[in-house]
């Protein structure tokens, strides 16, 4: 797949996850739905770091550092909602 097609595929994934975020949020306020909303947020951050920022091609330490940012935040927010 060409680099441009990968970027468009990432954008499509981001759009689908964004719509999913709203649908899940409107579906209720259970812990499972909250966790699902946060999981979609992490998925979007992953698509941005690995797709748009091209960290999938970067040294592993940088990739993990940038992926740690949404992971820590998602887990932190989830903890406050338990």
């Amino acid at each position: 797949m060409s680099a441009s097609k990968v970027l468009v595929a990432c954008w499509l994934g981001l759009a689908v996850l964004s719509v999913s975020t709203v649908l899940l949020g409107n579906a209720g306020a259970t812990l499972a739905l909250t966790a699902a909303v946060l999981l979609t947020a992490f998925g979007k951050a992953w698509l941005i770091t690995d797709g748009f920022m091209e960290l999938r091609h970067a040294p592993r330490a940088w990739r993990l550092l940038l992926l740690a940012w949404p992971l820590v935040l998602v887990l932190g927010v989830l903890l406050t909602l338990l």
């Binding site: 981001l14 964004s18 975020t21 709203v22 899940l24 949020g25 306020a29 909250t34 909303v37 946060l38 979609t40 947020a41 979007k44 951050a45 941005i48 770091t49 748009f52 920022m53 940012w69 949404p70 935040l73 998602v74 927010v77 909602l81």
Partner: peptide
């Protein structure tokens, strides 16, 4: 462009926290 993607990435975390989660 990386700076712009950083702005995007921050927003994808802000969006559910501010607008969606209950």
């Amino acid at each position: 462009v990386l700076y712009w993607h950083m702005v995007d990435m921050v927003w994808v975390l802000l969006f559910p926290l501010v607008y969606v989660l209950r």
